[in-house]
């Protein structure tokens, strides 16, 4: 399964890289920021968990974007970016629906 995915990714390296560094980085950064209010401490004024992700969105994007550009293994890159996006997206969705 992993081998098949690796072969599929390596067959279209440029497209994969474009998807990861383009929409992938934007989605991962936004989902990561959306999940941050859940696990970040609220701080003295009860706002740190909202303000930090709000401010850090561009920075998170930059990290994901550069990672998507420099990571040699496409499989690892897909796993890290999609995995982060999936976990954060799921956490955010659960918070939105009131499960956590």
């Amino acid at each position: 399964m992993t081998e098949r995915l690796r072969r599929a990714l390596d067959a279209r390296p440029r497209l994969t890289r474009w998807l990861l560094a383009g929409p992938g980085a934007v989605a991962a950064a936004l989902l990561f920021a959306m999940a941050m209010p859940i696990w970040l401490p609220k701080g003295a004024a009860g706002i740190d968990n909202i303000v930090f992700p709000l401010i850090l969105v561009p920075l998170i994007w930059a990290v994901v974007f550069v990672y998507a550009c420099v990571e040699e293994s496409l499989l690892r890159c897909v796993a890290v970016i999609c995995g982060t996006a999936a976990v954060c997206g799921l956490t955010a969705a659960m918070a939105f629906t009131g499960w956590i």
Binding site: I38, N49, I50, L54
Partner: peptide, 22 residues
Amino acid sequence: GFTGSFFSFAATVSLPLISQVA
């Protein structure tokens, strides 16, 4: 670039999304 993109995105994209969760 960082502070500029914060100003551009905060009200249009980031805050509406984060406030959905928070």
